[in-house]
Design a protein around this nucleic acid. Structure first.
Lengths: 237, 237
DNA sequence: AGGGTGTTTCGGTGGCAACCGAAGCATCCA
DNA sequence: TGGATGCTTCGGTTGCCACCGAAACACCCT
C-alpha cells in the first residue's frame, strides 16, 4: 500500500463520528470493553465490533482478550498525539467560536481532565503557569526544560526527574513539551515529567477520576499540595 | 457543531486519497494553484475544486485570489503538524514494513525534503545527528535545547538563535523539538531553529528545491558548509 | 469585443460504508 | 448441561460522497 493510501486509511478511520467517540473515550489511556465503547459511541454492539476490528487491523487500537471481555486501548502514544493534533486543528484557533454550548459534563472536562497520560484543562494550564512563574520550568512554543529549581521541586513531591533519563547524560533536564490545550487555548505540560505528575497525583489522591469520563476532580488534599508545593492559585484564593 | 462532529469532519477531510495528495503537496508551505493541485492528486479540475472548497470551508487550507489563479496554502502550522502526526501513525513503527516499493522519485524524497518549514529525510536526520554528536543540541524524546556551543555554531552560519525568543528571557535556548522522520524512523529537528536553518539553506544555495516536489538536493556548496560547519558526514566520506 | 485559460457550478452515476436485525461463537456460571 | 452474557459474523438496506461531463463564470490578453 502506498504511503498516501495508508495515510488516507488512518485519517478516514479517525473521520467517523462513532469511531471518534470511541477513540476519544480511550484518550485517557485506559482499556475499555467493546460494549462500553459501543455505549459511548451510541451504536449497537455489532457496529462497534466492526469499527473496533477495523481500527485494530489498522493499528490504531490494541486488543487484549480477558475472559469473555475484550479490552481495547490506544495502540501507542503516537495515536494519542495524533488525536491531540487533530483536536487542535478542529478547535479552529483562527475563527471566532460559535457559541460553545457547554453542558455540565463539558464543564467538568474543561476544568480538569487527563490528556492520555498527563493533565489538561484549566488545571493543566494552571499547573503549567505556576511552574513557569516559579522558575521551575521554562517553556517556549516548541519545547520545555525543567530547571534545577524544578528538579528540586519535583523531588519534594516525590518525583525523581533525573531518573527518567538514566544513561542519557546531558539531556536530563529536557523532559517536557508544551501541549496546546483545546479548551483553554494555552499550553499545558506534556512529556515524561507531566506523566509522572499525573500518575503521582492519582496515586496520592490529589485528583480523582470521574467515573466514565476523562474528567478529574481536584481533592481538598490536592488543592493544598498544588497550592503549597507548586504555587497554583485556585479560584477564589 | 459538537466537538466530536467537528473532529470527525476534519479527520474525514484528511481521509480521502485525493485530498491527501493535495495536502501532502502543500506540506512544504508553498501556495499552489487549483490546477496544480488537481494534477498532483490525479483528479479533474472540477473535482479538485470541490475538494479545495471543502477544505477551505473547514479551515484546513487558505485561499488567496490572484488574477485568474487561486493559490492555496495550508491554513496554519497546526495543520502541518496534524499531517505529520498522522503520517507517524500511518508509518506504523510497530510492524514490519511490507516491501516498501520505492520509485526514484520516492528516493529523492527520502534523501532530503522539506517538512513544512524544516528539513527532513536522510539529510534532516544527519543534521540532527551531527548537531547532537557535536554537543550543539540536546534532544530527548519530547523536547530539545540548543546549547551555548550550539548558539555559537548557528551564529557562525548566520543564524542568531537568541533573536527568536526576544523578550522571553530565560527560554532563549528552548527552541527546537524533535520530529520523528517517517522515512528514516528517527528524529530530525523541528522548531524555530530548524526553520531558520532550512530558510537560510535555501537562501544561501546550500540546498535547492526539486521542481514540483517537496524534495531538495544538497548542492556542492551545501555539502561543504554542512560538513565543515556542522560536521555532517555524507555518503562516501 | 472576442478568444483563451483557470476555476467553479450543476446534474447524474456508481460505489462504498455505516448501520441494524438476526444468527452464530465464545466464555462464564449454576 | 443449560442458560446468561459479551462479542462477532452475515445479509440487506440506506444514504452519502467522490467522480466526471457539460456548461457557466471570471479573468487576462490582444
Amino acid at each position: 500500500m502506498s504511503t498516501n493510501a495508508r495515510f488516507a486509511e488512518i485519517a478516514a478511520l479517525a473521520g467517523d463520528p462513532a469511531r471518534v467517540g470511541m477513540l476519544h473515550a480511550l484518550m485517557d489511556g485506559r482499556a475499555l470493553t467493546a460494549s462500553e465503547l459501543a455505549r459511548v459511541a451510541s451504536v449497537t454492539p455489532q457496529t462497534a465490533s466492526e469499527h473496533l476490528a477495523k481500527m485494530a487491523a489498522a493499528g490504531l487500537v490494541q486488543v487484549e482478550k480477558q475472559g469473555r471481555h475484550r479490552y481495547h486501548r490506544l495502540a501507542s502514544p503516537a495515536v494519542a498525539q495524533m488525536m491531540e493534533s487533530i483536536m487542535l486543528v478542529a478547535s479552529r484557533l483562527d475563527t471566532v467560536r460559535p457559541a460553545p454550548v457547554t453542558g455540565p459534563r463539558d464543564a467538568a472536562l474543561r476544568a480538569a481532565r487527563t490528556c492520555y497520560d498527563h493533565l489538561a484543562g484549566h488545571l493543566g494550564v494552571a499547573l503549567a503557569d505556576a511552574l513557569v512563574a516559579g522558575g521551575h520550568v521554562e517553556l517556549s512554543h516548541d519545547a520545555g526544560v525543567v530547571t534545577d529549581a524544578g528538579v528540586a521541586l519535583f523531588g519534594r513531591i516525590g518525583i525523581d526527574v533525573t531518573s527518567f533519563s538514566a544513561g542519557r547524560g546531558k539531556t536530563a533536564r529536557v523532559l517536557c513539551r508544551p501541549c496546546l490545550d483545546w479548551s483553554e487555548r494555552r499550553s499545558h505540560l506534556a512529556g515524561a515529567v507531566a506523566t509522572a505528575l499525573c500518575t503521582r497525583s492519582l496515586e496520592e489522591g490529589w485528583i480523582r477520576r470521574i467515573e466514565g469520563t476523562r474528567a478529574v476532580t481536584v481533592t481538598a488534599k490536592g488543592q493544598r499540595v498544588f497550592c503549597e508545593a507548586i504555587g497554583v492559585r485556585f479560584g477564589g484564593q
